[in-house]
């Protein structure tokens, strides 16, 4: 993609009165030297896999490989169906699916890295929910996935999408920002509002560390997918209400990258800090690694 700023994507989209997703989709077809229909087809296949992973996660929950998680997505989904809930149906639907997909990942099921395996629940969680709630067909969702991936490409270029490089803000934070941008476009918002949603989501996770207990993609990873899904929905709503990010989206992305670089190694996927070195985190790690010997 030859866009280096979200701002450039927004300007191009507004100039042509199309979505960011459309610009990204055309760019992708051009880069891969195939037709727009072919890249749509390929993205549709990713979408089907995302859907399947959420369905499997909710209907057949499994214990994770490390045994630390499993079944939480289904638990929230059952609760949502039988109770009024505090955060409401949409929010809990999205979060339960985000949890479910993250659990499928942790139990060696098939997922789409979005943008990483550790953050794979956020985008399917919210997009499946708006698909149902707003009655959108797969074609629309595919466009939303292009919006999300365009934003993700820019985050990868300007900052990072790797927990080892940038902490969890670069994984679940990036996923939330990508999802928020896609949600705005799917709800009929303007490209500039998608940029604001993306900025607001990312701002709220600046400094979020990557501290996996026992080094596994389980605790707190799955629940940070819940955070990302809820954050994406709230940020999209704020943007659709006309709230602007005071700090422009591209500057927020650069700040995220810089914060990531200044995080100590112990807080970047090494399991040497944060929750990983709490008494319980250590005990679980010992039990887990002990079992290994």
């Amino acid at each position: 993609m030859h866009y280096y700023n979200v701002k450039d994507l927004i300007e191009e989209a507004e100039k042509r009165s199309v979505t960011i997703g459309r610009i990204v989709k055309e760019m992708e077809a051009e880069n891969l030297e195939v037709s727009v229909e072919q890249v749509e087809e390929r993205m549709l296949a990713q979408w089907h896999t995302m859907k399947e992973s959420a369905e499997i996660g909710l209907s057949e929950p499994k214990k994770s490989m490390g045994g630390l998680i499993g079944g939480e997505g289904k638990k929230l989904n059952d609760y949502r169906q039988n109770n009024k809930t505090l955060a409401g149906q949409r929010m809990n639907k999205a979060v339960s699916r985000a949890l479910a997909v993250a659990e499928v990942n942790a139990s060696m099921g098939k997922i789409v890295a979005a943008p990483t395996a550790g953050s794979c629940g956020i985008i399917p969680g919210v997009l499946l929910t708006v698909q149902e709630e707003l009655n959108l067909d797969d074609r629309r969702i595919v466009d939303g996935l292009f919006t999300a991936s365009g934003i993700g490409i820019i985050i990868a270029q300007k900052a990072s999408i790797s927990g080892a490089e940038g902490g969890c803000q670069a994984e679940c934070g990036a996923a939330a920002a990508m999802a928020a941008g896609a949600l705005v476009e799917l709800a009929g918002g303007l490209p500039s509002q998608a940029g604001d949603a993306c900025a607001m989501a990312l701002k709220n996770v600046l400094g979020l560390i990557c501290d996996p207990v026992a080094g596994l993609v389980e605790v707190p990873c799955a629940k940070r997918n819940a955070l990302g899904a809820s954050l994406a929905l709230v940020s999209a709503d704020m943007a659709l209400a006309g709230i602007k990010s005071v700090i422009p989206v591209d500057e927020v992305i650069v700040a995220m990258g810089e914060v990531g670089c200044s995080l100590p190694d112990s807080l970047r996927e090494t399991a040497k800090g944060g929750l990983a070195t709490t008494p319980t985190g250590r005990e679980l790690a010992e039990r887990f690694l002990g079992r290994d010997k």
Partner: peptide
Amino acid sequence: YSCFDILGPVMVGPS
């Protein structure tokens, strides 16, 4: 980057 580097790969988890 391609869009499919960002939304992809399709893989068996967890890492």
